[in-house]
Design a protein around this nucleic acid. Structure first.
Length: 782
DNA sequence: TAAAGGAACCTTTTT
DNA sequence: GGTTCCTTTA
């Protein structure tokens, strides 16, 4: 973009010029005809069906710029919602770049949740809240539910609060408030679900708190019950843009329909083939139904792919073609042919990691067929996060720099959550959940009994826990060391609260003070475990992060919404992430390991959602393949360690669905792994397995048929396989067998239930024990 | 009440 | 194999 046109755009937007039109708008010339249509169709509903890599973000941002440029809308009149903070940030940056300036003036560009928080703060009282409500994360949510479950005398072993949290989440995704729960849900959670849900909502109100689902649901309810608010919002948001529309759930869908109800200026972008969030309530139906929901909608299909080579595209299309009920798109590209998708099988997960490590190093140097690639041009995309460890282990040993994206998040770490709880109690003393978390951290000699006393006192007086604790101390109800420590804590909280109000101490300093004076910092300084130094580092980082905020409250809100790691880690590194996390990203080189039935497609997904689940898994495969620009390598392993146990698996059924013409089957170059575990058949295996690998592809479905016939799936030598299984096999015990247990000593097996044994011990009596902890009596060396 | 050890659970995917 | 929760023990 030339500098003169930049300033044109700037002028146009900032002076809110009436009709600059398309003149002097180079961003329009940059678009292909379909993209251009999507950008220029400003009135009425528009559905932009954008396949992978077709320039969807470009079209979306151009549309925003166009709205501003033509004077159709001012920055604050555009509502643009995304699902992730990353997407929102990227859009902001791109719009800013196109306009040639910051877009401070787009307050309504953000995630669904962030936008809803803003709206809800404004109208909190309509939802029975105060505008300074706190946002609970999953952890708080579960703890609160645990209290309710226990209070209702329900066995929280059989009915875990975590499960209830999931159920309630689901209800909220469907926009079911307690009074709108359909009868079909009455039996949920042992029939107590609906009642507990109502109690939970009531308790949240008492705590002046909301959970994630509430953010949307409260706003939807307000819209439905207060027409004036709805009308006002419709006037505010003259144009609505929605990213990743295929991922919207019912609540979000209602929210959008309500807002677009007047002017119908809504533009939804999405790709039904990339709908991968069904498990958290996304409804592909929303996008499939768009034309019915918004009559007269313009539908634009973006089908020219600018990302991947034809082979990669064809492979992806081949897989996704197995799904039914698609809107249907035909992706095409003008890029040069490139390499076929590469397929390779391995003996086990470790060998797979080893091979990929070596392959990455080779590609870094460059090969006969390919240019050299930088490490940050390469990514490994896995189905489930536990697969990452094999790669981390391997890369650490060979010293290959990597970065895990979407791993354990900064704000979810123990020490960070503790520190945050301190801040929360100081800023809102009614936050009982936060108080419970810190009352005995560090150890203050306030165990269960002392905490119960506080609870009882608080309940008697109908006050929050902090206040209850204060009263308890006044009454002299808690003496000794615990009492003194509690006094110190309560006094401290009062003091910090005053400092917060007085504004004499900066909030950054205050935060440091809270952590030091409460003894929290000291606790970690005295901790001898290896993690302690890291945790102290994190605390420092946390306090530093505060500098970017006006005050503690602002910071707390930021954290509750931005749960992702934003560290812009620099340096050349290979990326490792889940397929879900990879959506929206692209890499020249992509590795897709772990394509085995049960792992991918995930068994659980298929068990729980059947054909629907399988289709979502297939879309996940499609997302994975289409992340690759130049080289895409799919791999599977015949054996994998799961929970420390070896398990063998069959190659994924998706491998059979790859169109043969676009796939090249690799054979590993000779003998790695030889010399390693040769006794377990290392060498022989790799020879044998190699033959099979080629075979795998020659006759799709072969392995599964073999397997169904009860034969070995992957051409491992039968003996080897049996050895592996036998060695690791657990429950090979027989009734009456004499066995030994580390703790209970000798006994006889009197019952067998799966992997659990009932053993009559000579000294300890009859007990049920997991077979893993049992060995045959004569195995014990003396 | 806190520390230590054992048993059971676990692995989808996340705003 | 790793984590968390629960029991036992000091």
């Amino acid at each position: 973009m030339s500098s003169s046109s930049d300033s044109d755009a700037f002028e146009a937007a900032s002076l809110s010029a009436r009709a600059v039109g398309a003149r002097g708008a180079p961003y329009l010339d940059d678009l292909n005809p379909e993209q251009r249509r999507a950008v220029e169709t400003l009135d009425g509903p528009v559905l932009m069906l954008a396949g992978a890599g077709t320039g969807k973000t470009k079209a979306l941002t151009s549309r925003i710029v166009h709205l501003l440029n033509t004077g159709r809308a001012r920055p604050n009149e555009i509502l643009a919602v995304t699902f992730t903070n990353k997407a929102a940030r990227e859009m902001k940056e791109r719009v800013g770049r196109m306009l040639g300036r910051d877009i401070e003036g787009m307050p309504w560009l953000g995630t669904f949740h962030a936008v809803c928080v803003k709206l809800l703060r404004r109208h909190a009282e309509l939802a029975g809240l105060k505008s300074n409500f706190t946002i609970l994360d999953t952890d708080d949510q579960v703890r609160l539910l645990r209290q309710l479950v226990q209070a209702a005398n329900i066995d929280d072993k059989r009915w875990p609060p975590r499960v209830l949290a999931g159920i309630i989440d689901n209800w909220k995704n469907r926009a079911w408030t307690p009074d709108k729960l359909p009868a079909s849900e009455a039996s949920a959670f042992d029939g107590k679900g609906p009642a507990l849900y109502a109690q939970y909502q009531a308790r949240l109100k008492e705590l002046n708190a909301v959970d994630f689902g509430d953010l949307l649901l409260h706003v939807v309810t307000i819209f439905q019950t207060h027409d004036d608010v709805l009308q006002q919002c419709r006037r505010w948001f003259r144009y609505i843009l929605v990213d990743e529309y295929q991922d919207t759930n019912v609540a979000q869908y209602l929210w959008l329909r309500l807002l677009a109800g007047g002017h119908q200026n809504i533009c939804c972008v999405g790709d039904d083939d990339q709908s991968i969030y069904g498990w958290r309530g996304a409804e592909v139906g929303n996008i499939l139904r768009f034309e019915k929901d918004f009559p007269g909608a313009h539908v634009v299909r973006l089908e020219q792919n600018y990302r991947s080579t034809p082979h990669i595209l064809a492979a992806a299309s081949g897989v996704i073609a197995g799904n039914r009920g698609r809107l249907g798109k035909e992706l095409w590209t003008e890029t040069e042919e490139g390499e076929k998708v590469r397929l390779i099988g391995h003996w086990d997960g470790e060998e797979e990691a080893r091979w990929i490590g070596e392959e990455i190093e080779a590609m870094q140097r460059g090969t006969r067929r390919q240019r050299p690639f930088g490490l940050d041009e390469m990514a490994i995309l896995v189905r489930a996060s536990h697969q990452m460890r094999a790669f981390e282990d391997r890369f650490l040993t060979i010293g290959l720099p990597y970065r895990v994206i979407g791993g354990p998040r900064f704000y979810e770490r123990l020490e960070i959550r503790d520190a945050m709880a301190y801040f929360r109690v100081v800023t809102s003393p009614a936050d009982d959940l936060a108080f419970e978390r810190i009352v005995n951290t560090p150890k203050r000699g306030l165990g269960d009994k002392a905490q119960q006393k506080i609870q009882i006192t608080a309940r008697e007086h109908g006050v929050p826990l902090v206040e209850g604790a204060r009263i308890l101390l006044e009454q002299g109800g808690l003496g000794g060391k615990g009492g003194a420590e509690l006094r110190k804590l309560i006094d401290g909280l009062a003091r910090w609260g005053r400092l917060l109000g007085e504004d004499t101490v900066g909030h950054v300093e205050l935060a440091g003070q809270i952590l030091d004076e409460s003894g929290y910092t000291e606790m970690w300084q005295n901790d001898k475990t290896p993690e302690a130094p890291g945790r102290l580092e994190n605390l420092k980082e946390l306090v530093k992060a505060l500098e970017q905020f006006e005050n503690l409250q602002g910071f707390l809100e930021h954290v509750s919404l931005i749960m992702d790691n934003e560290q812009a880690e620099s340096g050349e590194k290979v990326s490792i992430m889940t397929l879900h996390a990879a959506k929206g990203l692209e890499f020249p080189v992509v590795f897709l390991p772990g394509w085995e039935d049960g792992l991918f497609p995930s068994q659980r997904s298929m068990d729980e959602s059947g054909e629907k689940g399988l289709e979502e898994e297939r879309r996940l495969a499609y997302v994975g393949i289409t992340r690759a620009e130049e080289v895409c390598t799919i791999s599977f392993a015949g054996n994998r360690r799961v929970f420390g146990q070896w398990q063998s698996a069959l190659p994924s059924r998706f491998i059979d669905e790859l169109p043969e013409a676009h796939v090249e089957v690799l054979t590993p170059p000779g003998l790695y792994g030889g010399g390693y575990g040769a006794a377990a058949g290392g060498v022989q295996n790799s020879v044998d397995a190699r033959a099979a690998r080629a075979d795998v592809y020659n006759s799709p479905g072969w392995k599964r048929m073999q397997a169904r016939a009860g034969q070995r799936p992957l051409s491992q030598p039968a003996e080897t396989r049996n050895t592996v299984i036998d060695m690791k096999a657990v429950s090979s015990h027989t009734m009456g067998e004499r066995v030994f247990h580390q703790k209970f000593g000798y006994g006889a097996v009197v019952g067998i239930e799966g992997d659990k044994l009932e053993v009559d011990f000579e000294k300890a009596g009859t007990k049920k024990v997991v077979a893993r902890f049992i060995s045959a009596a004569d195995d014990i060396p003396f």
